[in-house]
Nucleic acid binder design. Structure first.
Lengths: 343, 343
DNA sequence: ATGCGGAATGCAAGCGGTTACAATTAGGTC
DNA sequence: GACCTAATTGTAACCGCTTGCATTCCGCAT
């Protein structure tokens, strides 16, 4: 029972292989393969015949076979190492993912989503990546000293991280924004508005954003910096609200706040409103990220714009370079102030 | 120059293959393969020897080779068919993605992210999926008559859609919530609060959510339903704000609004606040989705909770069943009201 | 003893490509 | 016309794993 001509509908005819194309164009499989892979060392006539045969047969290369033969997979992992709920609640993650998906699709690479939250997942991911099922990894994690990162490095898997994982400054390629500089910009903006008692809601100390934005903030404020006016959150709305409450309790006369994420800024605004302060009149607020959230908060947030599209595009570019054997240098991108109503 | 014992560091030793395991355990490759795939038809002693050899060699199966031999890929596509900016701005997408990633990882399947926004991307995706590079597709798209869906169906690729794509009720497996019922629940809640002039901000007419939630809303309100108090948005914040403004212009005395997404509800609240109405005192607002946003809006949203975890888990379950050749039936899940401060 | 059925295992033919190498051909050069 | 080079193409050996089939080895009923 030849399935080739099975009654229509049920079993679709066997997919055309490189043999079929070779037969249809009267050349050998080797030549077809050469045409597919750039057409070098192939005569124009042969190339044309093959192209036509590919067209008529509807041939499409089998990636598994190709991967088996070449050792490449033409796919890249987008690896999340935070507990899932944290990352997926963060709008910036979607932005990064979108950019990466776009950039990879343009280069005809496949994006495999990997989540390494639980220890078990980490173990599986480590195996999966170590086994070479992907050519490289886009690492989305900013926390300090990630053992998973260590294992990736040890396994020699090309990796590009987003943000500079603390403790890995030198042994991994990274794409990050100028944390210190952008924090300075935010602080300068607030100071330029004539605000005197400027507070900050920072991120976790074990993340680069949490650490270096405080540094920039302090640098810019100089003498006027007051460590009592710095609280830390975990980038979430609730933590921003809580931090703002703590700040207010300590100094009711605060007239400006720089939050290290838009979500914390939104939380802070909620607390301020509840405390009877108006934004931006009583207290000016600057956020960070310029995620989708920023424009829809009331009042719309003045915030530091992170160029997520560029970040992800750069990550992809560097990763593909690394996979190709080049040794690309890390990249730092600037963030820019977007002025809306909150400050 | 045997690379096997290359100087440490540079070239990591060749990965162990099934041959190495076979050699190490003194059985044939076939037997090793059988052990790996469930261990049927293998004696306990052989199995033990093989297991031990796998352990000591650090063997890990090559998925490409396996896929080539079996014709399966053990991977599934998470396919987005909306223009990217829409989907990635939507917090519900991240929730769905998270659930799918989790459920798939638990079944040891790989999640491949595919975006089919532009015509070119659609073409590529169609090829990619049609070529059998994934075993099935989780389709995230609710718009009417998607030609991509047609091509998937035509190609015979197992597909599970989220929501009931209009015009495809019968030819594709779906997981959806009870749109009509949940809209009724929302409307009933508002009516139960004693509100009399209840408006609705609906979604696009070519999405099931956009169509059937209005149906439920109307059914529940019965006589009191007034078509003039229905506006449509596209689920975004801005569209919600605009719709609310239109509604208010038409009837300033509206005392309740049911929005078909949390984002539109948040937009509506912004408009209401700007118009001097208080929420929920002057106008009660009910949203839809219970996305992360809901709790952080001011006031926190009363909303219809979509069980995203269940939805994605069911999608995965049905898809894997379909891939396994079963013929699973579509599923409809209930949404439940979550009461917070806005209504 | 002989024959039989089933469990366990080995054997080897693919799966669909890539690519090193050999073979063939054409174009010059002396 | 012999000889060399370079361009093109064919050949076939893998890549690592699965699986149908043949084979071997049992225990046990005839």
């Amino acid at each position: 029972m030849e399935p080739i001509d099975a009654p229509a509908g049920r079993q679709q005819r066997r997919k055309p292989t490189i043999r079929d194309v070779a037969a249809a164009s009267g050349v050998s499989r080797g030549t077809v393969s050469r045409v597919i892979n750039g057409g070098h060392w192939v005569s124009p006539e042969a190339r044309e015949k093959v192209d036509k045969a590919i067209e008529t047969t509807g041939y499409y290369a089998n990636t598994h076979a190709r991967s088996l033969a070449t050792g490449r997979s033409d796919s890249v992992a987008f690896l999340l190492t935070e507990p899932q709920h944290l990352l997926f609640a963060d709008p910036t993650f979607a932005l990064l993912l979108r950019g990466a998906a776009e950039a990879l699709a343009a280069r005809r690479k496949t994006l495999v989503l990997l989540v390494a939250g639980t220890p078990e997942e980490r173990e599986n991911v480590s195996h999966f990546v170590g086994a070479g099922h992907v050519d490289g990894v886009l690492l989305i994690s900013s926390h300090e000293k990630d053992p998973l990162l260590d294992s990736l490095i040890a396994a020699g898997v090309p990796t590009v991280a987003c943000g500079v994982p603390l403790g890995h400054q030198d042994d991994v390629i990274t794409v990050s924004i100028d944390e210190v500089g952008s924090a300075r910009t935010a602080a300068r903006h607030l100071a330029g508005l004539g605000r005197e008692r400027i507070a900050m809601i920072a991120g976790p100390e074990d993340t680069p954003g949490g650490r270096f934005r405080v540094v920039g903030f302090q640098e810019e404020l100089g003498e006027r910096f007051d460590a009592d006016r710095v609280e830390r959150g975990d980038y979430s709305h609730e933590s921003g609200a809580a931090a703002m409450a703590a700040l207010l309790a300590r100094d009711p006369d605060i007239d400006a706040v720089f939050a290290a994420s838009d979500r914390m800024a939104a939380g802070a605004i909620a607390t301020l409103r509840a405390a009877g302060r108006s934004v931006p009149d009583d207290v000016a607020v600057v956020g960070f990220d310029d995620s989708g959230l920023a424009a829809s908060v009331d009042p719309p947030l003045t915030t530091m714009h992170q160029p997520f599209d560029e970040i992800s595009a750069e990550m992809v570019r560097l990763l593909l370079d690394a996979i190709a054997g080049k040794d690309p240098a890390s990249v730092t991108l600037p963030a820019s102030l977007v002025t809306r109503a909150s400050a």
